[in-house]
Simulated assay, not measured.
Amino acid sequence: MKPGNYGLIGPNAAGKTHYLRSRFTHGAAFVPAAADAHFAGRTVADHLRAAHAVRPLNDDLLADFNPGAKIRDLSVGQRRLLTICTALAAEEDLLLLDEPFDGLDVDNRARIRELLIDTYTPERTMIIASHRSDDLAGLVDSVITVFDQEVSEPISLDKVRRNFPTLLGRKDEVRQLVEKRKVVREDVLGPTVRVTFAEPLDHPSATYPSDQELIDLLASGKANR
Rank of each mutant, 00 (worst) to 15 (best):
G221N: 02
S152E: 01
R185F: 04
S220A: 09
N224I: 14
F101T: 06
A37E: 10
Q212E: 15
R194V: 05
A40F: 14
A33H: 13
A69G: 07
D148L: 03
P3T: 08
P200N: 00
L157V: 01
F164C: 08
A63M: 08
H26M: 13
A219T: 04
A35Y: 00
R132V: 04
D216M: 11
T17L: 03
T166N: 02
E123M: 06
E179Y: 04
L116C: 07
A90R: 13
I127G: 00
V188K: 09
P200G: 05
R113A: 09
Y6Q: 07
A63F: 07
R194S: 11
A33R: 13
A110F: 12
L20P: 05
Q78N: 01
S220M: 06
L8S: 06
F147S: 15
E173A: 09
R185Q: 14
H18M: 03
V140R: 11
Q78R: 12
A34E: 12
L177T: 00
V151K: 03
Q212I: 08
L136A: 08
P100Q: 02
A90P: 13
V76K: 14
L168H: 12
V178C: 15
E186K: 06
M1A: 11
V106E: 15
T25I: 09
D187V: 15
P3F: 12
N163K: 06
A90V: 04
K182W: 07
P56Y: 07
Q212L: 07
V178D: 15
I127W: 05
P154W: 00
L20Y: 03
G10Q: 10
V106D: 11
T119P: 05
F65Q: 10
A13T: 05
V188L: 02
L88A: 00
S205W: 10
A37M: 14
L8N: 07
V151E: 06
F101W: 01
H52L: 03
R132H: 15
D172R: 11
Y6S: 01
S156E: 12
P165C: 10
G4D: 05
M1I: 13
L177F: 12
S220K: 00
D60M: 09
D98L: 06
R124T: 10
D148F: 02
G15S: 02
S130G: 01
L81S: 12
A206L: 00
G77T: 09
G190L: 01
A206R: 03
L61I: 08
D59L: 09
F164M: 01
L201M: 04
V188W: 04
S156Y: 03
A14N: 09
G68N: 09
H47M: 00
L157I: 08
L57V: 02
D73C: 04
L189Q: 14
T83S: 14
